[in-house]
Write a protein that binds this DNA or RNA. Structure first.
Length: 550
RNA sequence: UGUCCGAUGGUGUAAUGGUAACACUGCAGAUUUUGGUUCUGCCUUUCAAGGUUCGAAUCCUUGUCGGACAACCA
């Protein structure tokens, strides 16, 4: 292989570390907090962490960062595991920060003994005031110089439940004048008499992120701890705890999180959309959650490809959602079986076709796949075509049906439009056409060349199906840039539901749930489907040069 | 008005002192029983000013712009 792909900056670091013998093998981790559903931003992180280990022969742990019992639930643990597996990755070990609570407690005691941590009675408001501001130094807490013995005793009492929530905290003793706000005596432990999804009521003190994450990495011998840019200022603290504790030195590296056009990518905002019922749930096909894009019909391969194409760097970015759509079209074009479905039907009567005759025609399942096989579709005197495929007065480059004009019916015959039948109000009721018997698809001896090919369904055999057509959730490209409430920019037309008419094979001999509705887009069957009432979600439309120009 | 991070076509990402490239988008054309796919071509790029150097997107200085940081969240 000569198609050497250039390395991203993290791959460069890993290769350098490996080459220098710093590590024999690398260990990464994916550390979600089980307080919400995974989204495309997580997919980027998952592909990065698991991808790195896969590429360099290391391993990746799944570690739930469950240090805040108030917001975390087992339900989320299950959905997260499910999403990672769906994406196609396997973790080496399933771990929890809460597994380390006892160890973390010991670490805290160690720091107290070293005079590097103290129990503070200040209220949260007082502590906030002590912190100062980014441009002015903080001030020491009046409790900063308690004796080691007193701190040890009080910390033990905190654990023993002798205090109420918020009454005391454990703080690291670093430097209240540090230019980095995170180094101004950060909190290590807070009191929360809350039930934890794994440890139950065993604990009433819980470590903060900064006192849990790095140490958890260290315990697991994580070599490369990869997180997003906003943790850059935390790195000094991450290193400080590891240094003072003299434990395995994991290292933190930061990359820029994923932003996509026309959507939001924060758990908080996504939760809001769910709670305020702007969408049907976390798995609403318009959501950028993994459960949402899965239901929308995106394939794991297309998402992995997307994550590969967007790259990894440290600069802020806003990825065009069109790239995601490109990736799924690229995948589905090769794999999805073709079916014909008419959305806005207009009846065509083929006047020279025998009444009562039904012919079974063969149609390719997938022209991109030579082994894709064929399916049968009924053809008769009355068929349905798309309303927009006929124009009474056609512009110059219109290849579709118009009075006197000929088109090919896909996998069937060439027809010519002879008559437009209207009702009393002048509305078109049906089209009268004649077909060319010797133009049958596959054995065409007519010698006629037509420019346009239309999809169609047999009127008698058409199966009504519910189609859910999705557009972008928001009206503006860059939500980060938009003034005011992001919900003001919701696209009111992001979901359109309509009854459409499908060829019978859509519901019969199909062993896959993903299809290309010819000339319409890629669709996937929705779990809302019940026997006799199928529902299909539009994953993405086909590229349509004609529509774009008109 | 502090510390830290960043700045390359419309959007992303490369080029690691030696001809600024790849993908997506856009535009034009060819092929096509999907106005799809495929193929071809084109458009468009180094934040600014100084400096180092034979040579700078890359190194140095200053500036400009964007972002992060003051939750008992992660």
């Amino acid at each position: 292989m000569t198609d050497e792909k250039s390395l991203n900056f993290l791959e460069e670091i890993v290769e350098k570390d490996l080459a220098e013998g710093k590590y024999k093998t690398i260990v990464t981790r994916f550390p979600p907090e089980p307080n919400g559903y995974l989204h495309m931003g997580h997919a980027k992180s998952i592909c990065l962490n698991f991808g790195l280990a896969l590429k360099y022969g290391g391993k990746t742990n799944l570690r739930f960062d469950d240090t805040n019992p108030v917001t975390e639930e087992t339900e989320y643990v299950e959905s997260i595991k499910n999403d990672i597996r769906w994406l196609g990755f396997n973790w080496a070990e399933e771990l929890y920060a809460s597994d380390y609570f006892e160890k973390l407690y010991e670490f805290a005691v160690t720091l107290i003994r070293k005079g590097l941590a103290y129990v503070d009675d200040s209220t949260s408001e007082e502590i906030a005031k002590q912190k100062g501001t980014p441009t002015t130094p903080g001030t020491d807490s009046p409790y900063r110089n308690r004796s080691v013995e007193e701190n040890l005793k009080m910390f033990a009492d905190m654990r023993a439940g002798k205090y109420r929530d918020g009454e005391k905290v454990l703080r690291a003793k670093v430097d209240m004048a540090h230019p980095n706000m995170h180094m101004r005596d950060p909190l290590m432990y807070r009191i929360k008499h809350a039930h934890h999804h794994r440890t139950g009521d065993k604990w009433c003190i819980y470590p903060m992120y900064d006192f849990a994450h790095g140490q958890s990495d260290s315990i697991e011998n994580i070599t490369h701890s990869i997180c997003t840019l906003e943790f850059i200022p935390h790195r000094a603290l991450y290193d400080w705890f590891i240094e003072k504790l003299e434990i395995y030195p994991s290292h933190q590296y930061e990359f820029a999180r994923l932003n996509m056009t026309y959507t939001v990518m924060s758990k908080r905002k996504l939760l809001q959309l769910v709670n305020e019922k702007h969408v049907s749930g976390w798995d609403d096909p318009r959501m950028p959650t993994l459960s949402g894009v899965r239901r929308r019909g995106y394939t794991p391969a297309s998402i992995r490809e997307f994550c590969d194409r967007i790259g990894v760097a440290k600069r802020e970015n806003l990825i065009d959602v069109g790239l995601l759509e490109f990736c799924v079209r690229e995948d589905l074009n090769k794999t999805a079986q073709r079916r014909m479905v008419v959305f806005d039907p207009i009846k065509v009567v083929i006047t020279n076709y025998p009444e009562g005759k039904i012919e079974m025609l063969d149609g390719e399942n997938n022209p991109e796949d030579p082994n894709g096989g064929t399916r049968e579709m009924p053809f008769s005197r009355e068929i349905l075509i798309e309303e927009e495929d006929f124009m009474e007065v056609a512009p110059k480059k219109y290849f579709r049906l118009a009075p006197g004009q000929m088109v090919r019916l896909k996998s069937a015959y060439i027809i010519k439009c002879d008559d437009v039948v209207k009702d009393g109000s002048g509305k078109i009721k049906e089209l009268h056409c004649s077909y060319i018997p010797e133009s049958k698809s596959g054995s065409d001896t007519s010698g006629i060349n037509v420019k346009g090919t239309l999809h169609w369904v047999c009127a008698k055999h058409a199966v009504p199906v519910e189609a859910r057509l999705y557009e972008r959730l928001f009206k503006v490209e860059d939500l980060g840039d938009a003034e005011g409430d992001f919900k003001d920019y919701l696209n009111p037309d992001s979901l359109q539901i309509k009854t459409v008419y499908a060829e019978p094979a859509l519901l019969k001999d199909s062993n896959d749930l993903r299809f290309q509705f010819l000339r319409k887009g890629y669709f996937v069957m929705d779990p809302d489907s019940i026997p006799g009432k199928p529902v299909f979600n539009r994953t993405v439309t086909l590229k349509d040069m004609w529509a774009k120009k008109n």
